[in-house]
């Protein structure tokens, strides 16, 4: 097990290296000048050129990359001239709201998807199943920002029960924090829930057709226990896989959701940084998002063993 984990962690290095090269190349080859963003749209060409030189933007891109990589290896992601603070500090400040939002969105998705998908599978062909299928189709078709604006219009503007936008840390004020996070979490988690419901339904349906379910039923195992213990646990693998894979969509979805709901998370930071061509921050955030994505999938792989005891990560043949 430990060897497996070490191997997997080591395998992150080439992936991260490739991602860093790609990201570095893309953002440096994209037109747009951070010096211009600092000095304003009507600053003279001379002033912009002087600042670009001072910021080291005129050095060859390979030199810039290795100088950045060197710093990253020592844990220094660089300094943002716009935020006027180190990138690590900026990311740390914006990471918490994003993690809270993603976790809550994931909880929303799982809380909706697992019971709904299981019931739809159990009562296949019934009205519950048809309704579930319809709602999930709608959920998959509606982009999260449209859902977000609809929720905002309904709950914040018309009903006035929740705030339109903004953020309060739930750790300092749990109730107020949740009031701000619940709409974005639903809008972000909604799409994921739709996808997850369909996966759960398919997986549970598969298991329900297995012989051992019939056997259990003939032994007199009660229906509820049968469904949630015997079936769901065995259907867990595909569900877990999908949760891991869709974590990426939570990160990308947060770009839009955070902007609409004005949450000061990594998504907002990334969007604003792209707009002002704040290279060190863009690189830092993308690198972190990649790392998070890889780690979540590593955790999911490890959880397979928990869900299915037959799976062993060992060197034994």
């Amino acid at each position: 097990m430990l060897t497996y984990i070490c191997k997997r962690i080591l395998s992150l290095i080439p992936v991260l290296t490739v991602v860093s090269v790609v990201i570095f190349s893309i953002i440096h080859l994209t037109p747009g000048n951070p010096a211009r963003a600092i000095l304003g749209p009507e600053a003279s060409a001379e002033a912009v050129a002087a600042l670009a030189e001072e910021m080291g933007l005129n050095r060859p891109i390979v030199v810039q990359y290795f100088s950045w990589l060197g710093s990253v290896l020592t844990g220094d992601l660089g300094y943002s001239p716009f935020l006027n603070r180190p990138v690590t500090e900026a990311i740390a400040g914006n990471l918490v709201p994003t993690l809270q939002l993603s976790t809550l969105a994931l909880l929303v998705a799982v809380a909706i998807a697992v019971p709904l998908g299981t019931l739809a599978a159990r009562y296949r062909g019934s009205i519950v199943d048809s309704l579930t299928q319809g709602v999930t189709l709608f959920g998959l078709a509606v982009p999260s920002f449209v859902l977000g604006l609809l929720l905002m219009l309904t709950f914040a503007v018309n009903l006035r029960v929740l705030p339109v936008a903004g953020y309060t840390n739930p750790f300092t004020d749990p109730l107020e924090g949740l009031r701000y996070l619940i709409l974005p979490a639903i809008s972000l988690g909604g799409v994921l829930a739709a996808f997850l419901t369909r996966t759960t339904r398919a997986a549970v349906m598969d298991v329900l057709m297995a012989d051992y379910i019939d056997a259990a039923r003939s032994r007199g195992v009660v229906e509820g226990r049968l469904l949630f213990r015997h079936t769901l646990r065995n259907a867990g693998l595909p569900i877990l896989t999908v949760i891991g894979l869709t974590f990426g969509s939570l990160v990308t979805g947060s770009l839009v959701t955070e902007t609409i709901f004005n949450i000061p998370g990594l998504g907002t930071l990334l969007v604003n940084s792209i707009e002002r061509r704040d290279y060190p921050v863009i690189q830092g955030v993308v690198l972190l998002a990649t790392l998070l994505y890889l780690l979540v999938n590593l955790v999911v792989d490890l959880l397979y063993a928990v869900v299915d005891p037959r799976i062993r990560y060992s060197e034994e043949k």
Partner: peptide, 18 residues
Amino acid sequence: YEFVTDGATRVLGLQTGE
């Protein structure tokens, strides 16, 4: 000053008194 980049959010926030 709250920095709110999304125009629709600025309008909705104004209407709700935020």
